[in-house]
């Protein structure tokens, strides 16, 4: 397990309390899980993702991440509709471990309410939250 100081938490992302990250890309957002989440879960063996077109309210469970001996819910950090999912994860769930902010992205979402983005944490606030958690 990584020490908190060893975590990669990019500054250009927003973070949710349940360890998802969000990247704004035009009028849509890309969602994945943080370096902290992938590290604590361990080697991910299966990612259960919603279908394109499904809609969720902020904080709802929209999928799961499984490692050998744990299951974690994937909570959607913003209300919206699923525009795309990362199909590569079906064959290679380990991408979430290897490249959580790149090849390991999970969803593209069309946000319903842009203001929700402002409710998410920046990397400093997220790290502070992690320090309190540990």
């Amino acid at each position: 397990m990584k020490e908190l100081g060893e975590l990669n938490l990019p500054d250009d992302l927003r973070y949710a309390e349940d360890h998802e990250w969000v990247r704004l890309a035009g009028d849509k957002v890309v969602v994945g899980v943080s370096d902290y989440a992938q590290d604590r879960l361990g080697d991910i063996t299966y990612v259960e993702i919603p279908q394109v077109g499904d809609a969720f309210k902020k904080g709802e469970s929209c999928g799961t991440l499984e490692s050998v001996k744990a299951v974690a819910d994937l909570f959607i950090p913003l209300s919206g509709e699923i525009l795309a999912v990362n199909d590569a994860l079906a064959e290679s769930p380990g991408l979430v471990n290897e490249d959580p902010y790149g090849e390991g992205w999970i969803l593209e979402v069309k946000p319903l309410n842009a203001a929700e983005l402002d409710e998410l944490m920046d990397s400093d606030a997220y790290l502070l939250m992690l320090e309190r958690l540990e």
């Binding site: 499984e66 490692s67 050998v68 001996k69 744990a70 299951v71």
Partner: peptide, 12 residues
């Protein structure tokens, strides 16, 4: 595939 089982997924 033990994540289906009660000792990991509990009520689900």
């Amino acid at each position: 595939l033990a994540t289906r089982e009660q000792h990991i997924r509990r009520e689900k």
